[in-house]
Amino acid sequence: MQTEVLDVTGMNSEDCTETVMRAIKTIDGVGTVAVSYPGNRAIVEFDEQLTAPREVAAVLEKAGYGVRKLNLGQASNDGCSGRCGQCGCAG
């Protein structure tokens, strides 16, 4: 499994979190998905044999959102990779 941290643009309310999550989960090979509206982030774990970040981006763009890949170390100022639940990246 591979993990990507995406900067998701166009989320304008907490409702967008569920929309983004549902869109990503439609992709074969996607495992865990964590989305943060305040952090404009989606952390996606996926099987790289079944899908790729470009497919995730394409699905989100089709749903009306913009996407930019981030390095895991950029997920927060302290490099927590968005799993601390305190940085606003995800949690």
Rank of each mutant, 00 (worst) to 15 (best):
G73L: 05
T19A: 05
N12Q: 12
R54W: 02
G91D: 14
V59N: 07
P53A: 11
G79W: 03
T19R: 10
E48G: 06
S13E: 11
E18T: 15
F46H: 14
T9E: 14
R22G: 02
A42E: 10
R41Y: 02
G85T: 09
V33D: 05
G39K: 04
A75L: 06
G64D: 07
V5M: 05
R54Y: 03
L72Y: 07
A23T: 14
R68S: 05
F46I: 14
N12S: 13
V35Y: 00
G66Q: 12
I43K: 06
G88P: 11
N71H: 14
V30K: 03
A23K: 10
I27K: 03
G10I: 03
T19I: 11
D28G: 02
N77I: 10
A34T: 14
L50D: 08
F46E: 15
T51R: 12
A90E: 03
A58E: 13
Q2L: 04
G31S: 09
C84L: 01
L60C: 06
V56R: 10
G88N: 13
M11C: 06
V33E: 05
E55P: 02
A57Q: 13
A90Q: 06
R83F: 00
G79Y: 01
I24P: 04
C80V: 14
C16W: 00
G39S: 08
E14M: 07
E55V: 11
S13F: 02
M21I: 07
P53S: 12
A57M: 12
A58S: 12
R41H: 07
N12F: 00
D78T: 13
T32G: 00
V67N: 07
M1W: 09
E45W: 03
S76Q: 08
A63T: 01
V67Q: 07
E14H: 06
N12H: 10
A23V: 08
E48W: 00
V33M: 04
